[in-house]
Design a protein around this nucleic acid. Structure first.
Lengths: 209, 209
DNA sequence: GTCATTTCAGAACATTCGTTCTGTAACTTG
DNA sequence: CAAGTTACAGAACGAATGTTCTGAAATGAC
């Protein structure tokens, strides 16, 4: 954990906290809406340094997305466990999704990936690839959790399709939060999602298998 | 259907087609990404006229969203019927959602509401209200369809919650398409969604009711 | 034809955009 | 100390932004 001192003048800012500020701004204003001027000011990073470290606005945005994934999305995936029964883990997962989407609600609810990055993906192919990679990672993680619950080929619905469905629901909840929905409105939807996914599971393993 | 001729020089463009061009650009580039300059050029509308008719970029965007809802989203809702059994209507609904999300796929998959408007909603409160209104309208329409299938209070999941879930899935599919997913990848997810919603229904009406 | 009205074409507006450049300051190395 | 390296502050860049203005063109009303 040693602070490997490098040569030259030391930075006057903490890179992690600077990226957190970038995440906040990008999430609220979008990629095009967040100006480099405001980014520098709120990150407390000089313009020249920003270009040295991140290569420009596009690189900074990708770095912010990575930071967001590490600090905000990782806990959501971690909630999947396995830590208990599938019902409990899915419930914890959607609870974490709702917490993610309604954080900083007054100034800007939503998700950096499913709002800002998804919008920017329309014009920038590089961003579309990044969006696809983030979505794939989440679906693979959910697939693994379902397989751990013995959700295999016997079910009518494959674990991959069920995971894609579970992920789609999560993204839909995030968009609902973006439109202003609060925890009280989102939670019943999440509960219905958990019930629906579980019955999907039982349909295959208990039913006409 | 008479063309009520008004005084003054007649317009040199068709307003409907002009708005279609605005929809195309806004959907691909986003609200901030689409410049007034390009909008005028591709809509074939003079700048002065654009400001006279729509009041500015913000008004134009809202007009484009309305046009999009009338021409693109309305058919999706119409697919809900009731025209057949709930399973068939839900299948048709998600098929229409997929068609909507993958239209004009080469240049920009996705949805004007769930990508461009959702992103712009972060900074503009007016847009957030518009997003909420569009989402509410869709959920109410789905709720009505579920109630027509005798999905009422007897079920464990209320028709309102089930409709919110069904709508969330639709939005999640749209985001998946935005990331590059094609019809082949989206359809199994949609089929799983239909199965999940139907089992949710049966769980309540046939089970421990 | 004359007037009122609406649209059109394009210049012009002040801002703001993302990016680059010019020095100067602060640190490690030798 | 001097040399080398990195980060700082801020001006400067051309290009693009959303909006407004000016005057000419094309129509219905009278």
């Amino acid at each position: 954990m040693g602070e490997a001192r490098v040569r030259g003048r030391p930075r006057g800012f903490d890179e992690g906290r600077a990226l957190d500020a970038a995440v906040r701004l990008f999430r609220a204003e979008g990629y095009d809406g967040a100006s480099v001027d405001r980014l520098c000011r709120e990150m407390r990073v000089p313009r020249a340094t920003l270009y040295d470290r991140f290569g420009g606005k596009e690189g900074l945005f990708l770095a912010a997305v990575a930071r967001y994934a590490d600090t905000r999305i990782a806990p959501v995936l971690a909630a999947l466990g396995p830590a208990g029964a599938l019902r409990e883990d899915l419930t914890a997962f959607y609870e974490a999704v709702i917490a993610l989407a309604t954080a900083d609600r007054e100034e800007a609810p939503g998700c950096l990936v499913s709002c800002a990055l998804a919008d920017a993906a329309g014009a920038h192919p590089r961003f579309r690839g990044e969006l696809a990679a983030r979505y794939d990672a989440m679906e693979e993680r959910i697939t693994a959790r379902l397989k751990a619950a013995e959700w295999d080929g016997r079910a009518t619905t494959s674990p991959e399709s069920a995971a894609a469905l579970a992920a789609s629901i999560a993204r839909g909840l995030i968009l609902a939060a973006r439109s202003g929905a609060g925890t009280a409105e989102l939670r019943p939807t999440a509960e219905a999602a958990v019930r629906a996914l579980l019955t999907l599971h039982h349909e295959g393993t208990l039913g006409h298998g």
